[in-house]
Structures are given as structure tokens and as C-alpha cells.
Design a protein around this nucleic acid. Structure first.
Lengths: 269, 269
DNA sequence: CAGTGGTCTAGACCACTGG
DNA sequence: CAGTGGTCTAGACCACTGC
């Protein structure tokens, strides 16, 4: 990436603001897009294209300003939004880095389960026990959640996570077979770090956001056994769809959380 | 500017009361505070003092810039943060307004329960049925959550919310007796709008953020009857502490949500 | 020390709202 | 039309990091 193939839609003015929102558009949505949003889009494209890999630094604000022929302030505002969305991380004095799940600090980025006393760190690293990995065809529900066709190949994983030595989470994962070809049980069980970090490293899939739906359910016999609780124990069901860039769903996950010693924490504002 | 050659380590220009980040502390944290954060603090103070009431407009950016003797950009950055925290709302062409729970748009600001199909609006307004209001002494748990002394007076409310005609949420509320003196069952049941809006209007208490802890539990006999479900039905327990300014807790709430037709939705990023 | 992100200013102009 | 928030620029300086 040295020369500059950028300037795809070629709108970036040299010295003037503006960017002709639209000629005499009769559309109900003129869709005025300020410059910094266009810059944000361009940077986003480079992130998606893998021009900079997770953990790497992106060019400095000055460099990007020169590249896009805008002022530093405009680049700054674009990066501000990307940072707010956790797509990049700013580090004063060092640079701006592509966010990654492979960092001690942001481990368990999507896990909201907390012990009633203390914090997750005090319980040591989570123990993963993989129960089952199999290739199946997507059910209607899985297909819809992952934007696949029913009967498309899907990897299904079942595992138990133990916190502080106690089995606490029973999870079923569904992954599009195409993107995760060759995934093995050993990979899932043995990877040192978050599973989402493994997705990045081994498959180039970077999860950017997720949506969860929570319900209270009763443990059936099989679930109760795996979690070492009585049958009909109430469990917190957490259904999660995780997305990469462009709102593309890449993982469906259904977790059953024991909430006798832990709780799901959420901050509202 | 006139008399402001930018200020090294914190300080406010003439006129406004400074905030002096910290005395010559020997702390390892020098606590450098940029100008815009000091301005934010001053605006925050005015919000707390009630200089501008919920729903009212605050002075324009230009006015505030003049008042604090800083540039518009600095005021802007301060307001940006306040807007990000939902303390104020910006409206282009109109002004910046003190956020309020009394708006159709942001109704149910803290309620994350969604019908499995459709949205909350499609079910019409929630029906409130107040079961009980009484004055009690704070238990140890309630006292801790609300930063009170045990045996301090507390208002306890029990009510059932029905969505689309179906009883869906059983809630117990605990409010500091001092701040909510005179609260009646009629006020709670009859107020047209969110309960948090009633707190604002009738008691001058504005909730700014909240923390929730979720668990899966089983309905006991009394709860089951009120929610019209079988005993031992799994329910989502949502324990919420709501805070006003200065992180002062002003309400403890424990909701039991039916999750057979609804789910608790959470977006992660 | 140079390079990075972070703050602050001053001024210009644009988009939106309401009278 | 005037007033408000929103965008953009250019330049200066500060705080932090690493060599």
C-alpha cells in the first residue's frame, strides 16, 4: 500500500468545503454527507480491505489528512467516530491502532457476566471444555440469523465455560461453514485467549458489534448435567448475533448462564 | 482572545470560578484537566443547580463561550460530551436542551424489554396497576443500594405493568423517603407518562443513568398470581439502581419480566 | 529529541428552524 | 431573515511516548 489508489468517488475538494451535496435533487432525502463522514467511510474501507491489520497502527492524522487532502481536524473527527465505535483505539503519543480482540485489556469484550463479588479477573482465566464440534446444515432459524440459505453448511460447537473452577456457561455456537472452513475442536479449546481473537488470527474475521436477546429459561436434563445443577434450575438464556464489518452476521451464539453466583451486568444511560 | 494566552496546567480565565483540579498533590496522578472538561463541569453545575429546567434550552454556544471567556469550539466540545451522556439534547437550528424523560420520543428510556415481534409502540401504552404503596424502614440491602442508613424511611411500591393487555412486569420500587415525601399511589398510577417523568415534575429528581443486574429466577406463588403465570415459571429478574447527578442513587427497582413473549434486548459494541 | 494524539483559537461558511 | 447548531480550515501549542 504505497501508491494512492484512493479517491474512489472523487469528491474531495482541495481547498474548499462543500462537496456539492447534490445537484437539484428532488429526492425527499438529499442525503447531505459532511466531509468527515466521507473520510470516515474511506478509512472504514481500508479497514475492511485489510490495508491495516488488527493491532497495527494506521497512518498518523497528518498523513491521512495529506492523503485525503483535508485538514487534520476533519480526519480527527472521522477517527473520533471510529474510536467511539471501538473500531480503532487511540493512544496518545503513539498513534491510532486497529482494534483487536487479542488484548489482555479488552478480553471478554462482549461478556457481561460478572461474579456477585469481585470481578472476572479474580476468578482467573475461563476454562473451556469443548463438548462437540460438528458440521451441519443450517436450520431455518440459524440461516435467518446468519443471512444464509437453509441447508447451507454450518459449524456447530457446544462447549462449557468454567469460571473459578465452576461450570457456569453452556454455549452453542453456529458459524458459517464457508468462512470458518477447517475449524477444529482443538483450535477452539486450545487457543490461548478469547475465541473472537482466534477468529481474527486464524480466519481473518473481526467481530465489531453484537446484539443480544435475553430470556429466563429452565434447564433441561442434558443442560443441567453439563452445568452441574438440578434439572429445572432457572438459567439466563443469552442469544447473541455477532457482526463483522458491513453488518454482516458471522456468528450465532446461544449461552445458558448460571446466575446463582454471577449476574449479567448492564449500564444504562 | 483578549486576555487569554492559553493556560498550561488548568485554570479558568478571568470571571468564572476555577475548578483547580487538585492542590499540589503528591499523587501519582497529576490530573491534568483540559479547559473543555472544566467548562463541562461548570455547565454540569448549572444543570444540577436547576439554572435551566428539564426541557428548556440552555444558552447558545456563543453565549456560553462569552460567559466562560473561551472559544465556541471549546464550549462545543464540552456540550458534545454532555450530549453523549444524554444530559442534554442538541437540535440543529433550535438550540441545546436539557434532557427530560417527558418526551414521547425517549419514552421508556431505561426499559430494554421488547416484544419478540413488533416493537413496544405497537402494543400501545403500558398499563400500570399499583398493588401497594407503603412507608417502611430501609433494610440493609435497600440502604446500601440507596446510600442510606438502615432504618431510614423508604417508600416501597409494588405494581404490575401490562403490555398489550398482558401482565408482563412485576416491579418493586424503593425510594428515599426524604426526597419523595408525599408520594401517593394515585400519583404513580395516574401520571400520564413515564414514572421517571413524574419524578422530574413532582419531585425535581432527574434520573441520569442506571445500572442493572440480571438473573434468572423462579416465580413464587404470589408473583405467579400477579403475573398470571404458573408457579415456578422462569422469570427474568432485573435489579436496577437509578442515579441522579453526582452519582447519587435515588431509586432501587426490582423487576420480574415475563420472557415468554418478550425479551430483554442489549446491543454490544 | 522528533513524532504522535490532544487542546485551543479565530474565522468562515453551511444546514436547519422559526418568525 | 436572523439565530442556532454543524462543518471545515489553518495554525499554534501542549501532553505523552519512545529513542
Amino acid at each position: 500500500m504505497s501508491t494512492t489508489p484512493t479517491l474512489p468517488t472523487s469528491q474531495l475538494p482541495a481547498g474548499a468545503a462543500g462537496v456539492a451535496p447534490s445537484a437539484q435533487g428532488q429526492l425527499p432525502q438529499p442525503a447531505f454527507s459532511p466531509l468527515y463522514l466521507q473520510i470516515k467511510g474511506l478509512i472504514l474501507q481500508s479497514l475492511e480491505n485489510g490495508e491495516w491489520k488488527p493491532g497495527e497502527a494506521i497512518p498518523s492524522e497528518m498523513e491521512l489528512a495529506a492523503r485525503f487532502r483535508v485538514s487534520q481536524g476533519t480526519v480527527r473527527k472521522a477517527i473520533d467516530e471510529l474510536a467511539a465505535e471501538n473500531l480503532v483505539v487511540r493512544r496518545q503519543g503513539k498513534g491510532t491502532f486497529v482494534a483487536t480482540h487479542s488484548e489482555r485489556h479488552v478480553q471478554y469484550r462482549f461478556l457481561r457476566l460478572m461474579p456477585d463479588r469481585g470481578d472476572l479477573d479474580s476468578e482467573g482465566p475461563a476454562q473451556r471444555r469443548v463438548i462437540d464440534v460438528r458440521r451441519v446444515r443450517a436450520t431455518v432459524e440459524v440461516a435467518r440469523a446468519l443471512s444464509l440459505r437453509p441447508s447451507d453448511a454450518v459449524l456447530q460447537v457446544r462447549r462449557v465455560l468454567s469460571l473459578g473452577g465452576v461450570p457456569t456457561i453452556l454455549e452453542d455456537l453456529w458459524l458459517p461453514g464457508a468462512a470458518f472452513k477447517g475449524l477444529t475442536a482443538e483450535q477452539i479449546a486450545g487457543y490461548p485467549g478469547p475465541t473472537y481473537a482466534m477468529y481474527e488470527v486464524d480466519f481473518g474475521v473481526r467481530m465489531v458489534r453484537a446484539e443480544e436477546r435475553l430470556r429466563a429459561v429452565l434447564a433441561d436434563a442434558a443442560q443441567a448435567q453439563l452445568l452441574e445443577v438440578a434439572s429445572a434450575t432457572p438459567l439466563l438464556s443469552v442469544e447473541r448475533v455477532a457482526y463483522t464489518y458491513n453488518d454482516a452476521p458471522m456468528e450465532l451464539r446461544r449461552g445458558l448462564y448460571r446466575t446463582d453466583t454471577h449476574h449479567y451486568r448492564n449500564d444504562l444511560n
